[in-house]
Simulated scan of single mutants.
Amino acid sequence: MRISVPTIPLLSTRLPPPHRTIEEAVERVADFLYPGNVAILTGAGVSVDSGIRAYRGSDGRYMNPNYKPLFYHQLMDESEEGHAFRQRYWLRSYLGYPAIRETLPNTTHFALAALQHARVVPRLITQNVDGLHHRALNLAPGRQNTDILELHGSLRHVHCKYGHGVDRSTFQDYLSAANPQWKAFADETERTGNKPRTNPDGDVAIESLGTSYTSFIVPACTSCLSEKRINAVHKPEVIFFGESIPQAVKDRSYRDVEEADRLLIIGTTLATFSAFRLLRHAVALGKPTLLLNVGPSRGDNVPELERIDMASGLIMRDVVKAVLGFTALEDPVVAGMLKSGIDKPPEDDTQPWTAEAPK
């Protein structure tokens, strides 16, 4: 089996998008959104201002050249090798998940939630697994989490290979109880602020610690134990490389594009085919498409795709004000959302994380 990590073309046959000032970008995105009934597709770039690093930099390349994601078949392999992969994944995820859990929505999340509340954007599809779109939309009464489609799943839930589910916070407690030495280590990094860098999927790189994964214990599923079965094969409800998106989710993503009049894409290089095919589907249906992102993308060679090279956090609040007009001031929900959201992009630190690993 050969499965590769998605890449994007760094050489495009199209010219770079024209330079726009912030004011020009606000006007263009607002004009695109103003007719309403717009579907939005977001990626990791939307969560950068919340302090979560994107996978790729402004040149389209992985910011960590040694990035080696875990594949679905590795995580679910029941051999000793698969057990080792799960130890690696769950230790790194155990250390990285608190940062995802505690991260707050940023100004773009709340701007998009305001557009959803105002019914300009009835459909939002996200590749992100951090749950930040949901947290922003929670300020809007009457809007449901079903208004957001998580294309690649969510870190909020874990299930075993037999389908028994548990929320992630509870599973985090199980990991802590099974690994008290790592619990003490995590508490110390929290106390000192010497935390590892976290990827958008909650994974952290700990190679610099010089530690082995072999001592990390992945606990058995408690529901399986009640059924007199020992099973410690767990997976978060996210889509791993090499794993198929559930058919119901795929169908819903196509339907969301079909029912919209246009598609706005924000903060993604469209490197994963699950996202790129939604762009292709919209183009095939003759729907206008616009990409707001920094740097090259897989869509650069799609001539129907209009592109604006700019970070969403620079303009989305003003875009909402331009689209909604007086409503942005008079609607207390929208006004509250436009005053909400953090702006704390991750530090540009390239040095390896240093800490003393548990013995």
Rank of each mutant, 00 (worst) to 15 (best):
I239P: 02
R252G: 00
V249K: 01
E188Y: 15
F171W: 15
D251R: 11
L279E: 06
P180H: 01
L225G: 01
T272E: 08
K161R: 14
V238A: 01
P196R: 09
P296I: 02
L290T: 11
F241D: 01
K287P: 08
P196N: 09
T269A: 15
F273T: 07
S176M: 14
L279W: 07
R197I: 12
R280F: 04
I230S: 10
I266M: 05
T189S: 05
L270I: 08
C224S: 07
N231S: 14
I206R: 07
K161V: 14
E243P: 02
V249W: 00
Y174W: 15
S297F: 08
L270Y: 13
K161C: 11
S215L: 12
D201G: 00
D173T: 13
G165Q: 13
A184I: 04
L305P: 05
A248H: 13
V302C: 11
R307S: 04
L263R: 10
K287Y: 06
T198K: 00
A248E: 15
K287F: 12
A232G: 02
N231P: 02
G165T: 12
I230Q: 13
S212Q: 12
W182G: 01
P196E: 06
N301M: 14
G202M: 03
R252W: 01
L264I: 09
R191V: 06
T222G: 03
D187I: 02
I308S: 06
G286F: 08
A184H: 09
A177Y: 09
A260M: 05
L279K: 04
Q172A: 10
G299T: 05
V257S: 02
A248K: 12
P288W: 07
